[in-house]
């Protein structure tokens, strides 16, 4: 063993060009990735017999505006492998100008609402998402409330009822 967890080793072997950075902490490893091939990486992590990350625990967005980290946004995936007990965190930094990346809904069904939430709160677009629409705020809402430059006290009224055929 060279001490590097198997997930990170395999990711380096297979997608060496995509790995930007590795953060190592026992039980809480993180890999920073380029955004280009996220669905491929996700499928690989799920299907590889030595990894088998069957669980997508969480997707969330982070806005680093006040920390002055560039690029401004990041999407964070938390994965868990039931068979092997591994955990990994994937970070995908995104620029403010085109905050877009490919959806992982085809890989894990459960990504659906988490991606919608990240879209709603941060305005990060997920290409290929089946139903990318606001999930927590209402349809007349303008802006993305968890961005650090949104005035958090500013309310927006919802004046009409949305058709109940969705949601």
């Amino acid at each position: 063993m060279d001490g590097e967890p198997i997930t990170i080793r395999k990711l380096r072997e297979r997608f060496g060009g995509e790995v930007l950075d590795v953060q190592r902490r026992p039980g809480d490893d993180a890999v920073t990735l380029k955004r280009g091939r996220i669905p491929d990486i996700a499928r690989f992590l799920r299907d590889d017999p030595e990894l088998r990350y069957g669980y997508l625990m969480d997707i969330c967005g982070v806005d680093y505006l006040d920390l002055e980290i560039q690029p401004r946004f990041a999407v964070i995936y938390h994965l868990y492998s039931l068979e092997h007990g591994h955990r990994i965190r994937l970070k995908v930094p995104l620029d403010e100008t085109d905050a877009e990346l490919d959806s992982v809904v085809p890989v894990w069904d459960g990504a659906n609402w988490f991606e919608r939430e990240a879209f709603d709160m941060f305005g990060i677009k997920f290409r290929g998402h089946p139903f990318l629409r606001r999930i927590l705020t209402h349809h007349q809402f303008v802006g993305h409330p968890l961005r650090k430059d949104y005035d958090h006290g500013k309310r927006q009224l919802c004046t009409e009822v949305w058709d109940l055929e969705f949601e």
């Binding site: 927590l136 705020t137 209402h138 809402f141 309310r155 927006q156 009224l157 919802c158 004046t159 009409e160 009822v161």
Partner: peptide, 10 residues
């Protein structure tokens, strides 16, 4: 929440 107001009113 603001989203629920129209429902509440209705």
């Amino acid at each position: 929440t603001d989203k629920q107001v129209p429902i509440l009113k209705m």
